[in-house]
Design a binder for these strands. Structure first.
Lengths: 224, 224
DNA sequence: AAATTAAGCGGACCCCGGTCCGGTTCGTTA
DNA sequence: TAACGAACCGGACCGGGGTCCGCTTAATTT
């Protein structure tokens, strides 16, 4: 199965146009089952929708699936899809949620070198490699789930990754502007870039991996 | 004026679904007036459309302008817009074309430190700062013109920037995988990131500039 | 200058993401 | 268990991007 992440923090009931932006960033994700007590039928429909979406995507590819088709496949109305997931991006993101939580659990509390215990540089290296391969696996979905340019960096899951990298960097380079420095590192792991390099330029993943290690090496090399 | 770049390499006549991908990358842009001898009426309409688009964007913002409105303002049919520019992204890109050519001319043949003559590291520094401020000026348009994730990195203007950075890097780090290393550098200059950092996080441009210089410093620092 | 033809034109048309609101159902309270 | 209200549902509806195809017009050829 692909989605399996039926429980995810998606949206407050309906009018989702509010975006507080004051998100706690870290830790917000990780605690499971945070949907604020969905009504029975709503929860059922939510599950149906995710199943339906996964099924259709497996069959036609993420790009070839319309919201209406998902609704039909799930046997619910179109409005229900948007009520639950806000928009297309929201639905796709929910499908990715399970693996996102898994990754986050791994680097927040899993075994070293990804989790705590290893030296920060090693954790950073492992983090990049993990993200790289995870994204490569779900490339189509990751691409389709990418929100428009004005929201890409504000997206909670991206924020979580950014926070993690920033924290690691601060341990390595206490005097640098780590919040900023984290951005190019993260950008290297952008699914759209991975897609470009592997599929459009034909680079093998090994080269990307080498590139990551090299980048980390260069960025974290201290003082002259 | 904003657009002013009436002459740009946009698309062969109609069926644009072909994307050769074998683009010469560099130098392709720079030689002016490369529209392959447009018919008189077509050229006239093209100019009208760009003027109309610029006018409407100035008035309603890039996001608030529909293709149909542009067509109407220019006094042509909707089909004409799409025939000429392929899609929304194409039209917006054409509006940015003038300044893109200007920038390219500057770093390909202008005076140092941007142009040839200065040490590569200085050129790289100057390049980033120039791109940074140029993007900041046209942020709305740059954001609106951003193509979907699967085309973002394949876009000719991005390719041109990437090539330039790669070339500079190779002069500084002959043994590194400069093609790859150029990506995170370029990503730091992504309009979507600039938008996020300045408008959503409230960072001043000075900090972004410092961040660029620091990043260049770290990435180009040679050997242990 | 007439004929020929390829390029260009335009607006009706389709599709899909997203919204709205009248009717329904769940869960709770009395 | 009756009744109430909030949450939910669904599908009609809307707007905008992108396509199509029959008609028009600019360039070229003789």
């Amino acid at each position: 199965m692909l989605y399996a992440g039926f429980m995810s923090a998606v949206l407050p009931p309906f009018p989702p146009p509010q975006e507080p932006v004051d998100t706690p960033q870290l830790l917000e994700v990780g605690s499971a089952a945070d949907e604020p007590c969905l009504r029975a039928d709503a929860a059922r429909n939510r599950a149906r929708l995710l199943e339906a979406a996964a099924r259709l995507i497996a069959e036609h590819g993420a790009a070839g699936v319309t919201m209406e088709a998902v609704a039909a496949e799930a046997g619910v109305g179109k409005g229900t899809v948007f009520r639950r997931f806000g928009d297309r991006t929201g639905l796709l993101t929910a499908l990715l949620d399970h693996s996102a939580r898994g990754l986050q659990a791994d680097f927040l509390g899993g075994p070293p070198p990804l989790g705590p215990g290893a030296p920060p540089v090693d954790r950073l290296r492992a983090f990049g490699v993990a993200v790289l391969y995870r994204s490569a696996e779900q490339l189509d979905l990751q691409l389709a789930a990418q929100p428009d340019p004005t929201r890409r960096y504000a997206h909670p899951s991206v924020r979580a990754l950014h926070t993690h990298v920033t924290v690691l960097l601060r341990q390595i380079l206490p005097d640098a502007d780590c919040e900023l420095l984290a951005q190019p590192l993260l950008a290297y792991l952008d699914p759209a870039l991975i897609n470009h390099l592997t599929r459009q330029c034909g680079m093998p993943m090994e080269r990307l991996e080498k590139g990551w290690l090299d980048l980390v090496e260069r960025v974290t090399r201290t003082g002259a």
